[in-house]
């Protein structure tokens, strides 16, 4: 067993494990680049929760508000964000992924595991069998430790790359979602009326709405601090 063989086996596993993410990233990068979408450098990603809450609130006011391109983009952003959260979860569950996905699908480990199980099942082991069992057990543990080291380093790196790429894709799509939100809000009579009552007028925007929310949110609460962070982006 050489280092190259270990690395190859782990790389093959990662290709399968991240297969859907490769596709998701390819489709989205192609979409953004082929249509020359604006890719903001500010962190609009941070405003995800604010936008989702606002969309929910406006939908409660007028269920017809969310439709057409806006509805599609909203769905798109939610899907990508869920995948982003899954990647974040992966970081905490490397050991579980290794045990439940990698080891169970590795022919080498399956073979070793099978051998060990057969020896376990035997009621009376000869001295030679007992010795073999101990050697096999030790070998299994050692191999597992070596593989785990390579596996952790590799999967964390790939996972991190996908997190950064999805964050960047989301940043662009959230920026457009923000623009569409206010475009569609103005088309709804009920929401426009609601915004007029808040004195946000015809030019309502995330910036103005956040400033309004800050006035009615309990100061120094977590939500207030979050809205303050969002306000800095729109400033």
């Amino acid at each position: 067993m050489t280092t190259k063989m270990i690395e190859d086996e782990i790389a093959q596993f990662n290709d399968r494990f991240f297969d859907e993410y490769f596709e998701l990233v390819d489709i989205n990068i192609d979409f953004i680049e082929s249509h020359k979408l604006y890719q903001p450098k500010q962190n609009y990603f941070l405003t995800y929760d604010f936008l989702m809450t606002t969309i929910k609130h406006f939908t409660n006011l007028d269920f017809r508000f969310i439709n057409g391109t806006f509805e599609k983009l909203n769905r798109d952003v939610i899907i990508i964000h869920k995948q982003y959260l899954k990647l974040l979860e992966n970081e905490k569950n490397i050991s579980k992924i290794f045990q439940e996905y990698f080891l169970k699908n590795s022919p080498l480990f399956q073979e070793m595991f099978k051998g060990l199980m057969e020896l376990q099942k035997s009621v009376a082991l000869s001295e030679y069998e007992q010795e073999t069992k101990e050697i096999l057990n030790e070998h299994y543990r050692e191999m597992k430790a070596i593989y785990y080291e390579y596996f952790t380093a590799d999967i964390l790196l790939i996972n991190k790359d996908f997190i950064a790429t999805l964050k960047s894709i989301l940043n662009t799509k959230i920026y457009y979602l923000d623009k569409l939100l206010w475009m569609y809000a103005k088309e709804s009579e009920i929401i426009s009326h609601f915004l007029r009552t808040l004195k946000l007028g015809e030019h309502a925007s995330s910036k103005k709405y956040i400033n309004y929310r800050l006035k009615v949110t309990l100061p120094y609460s977590d939500n207030y601090k979050y809205l303050q962070k969002c306000a800095r982006i729109y400033k």
Binding site: T69, L73, I79, Q83, K179
Partner: peptide, 26 residues
């Protein structure tokens, strides 16, 4: 299986129009 959202021509036009507005302002 991740279900990607498929945009039609009308959606693309909306994106392009928004991009034009953003570029102009910038």
């Amino acid at each position: 299986m991740i279900h990607n959202v498929v945009y039609d021509e009308e959606d693309i036009d909306t994106f392009l129009e928004l991009t034009r507005k953003i570029d102009n302002t910038e």
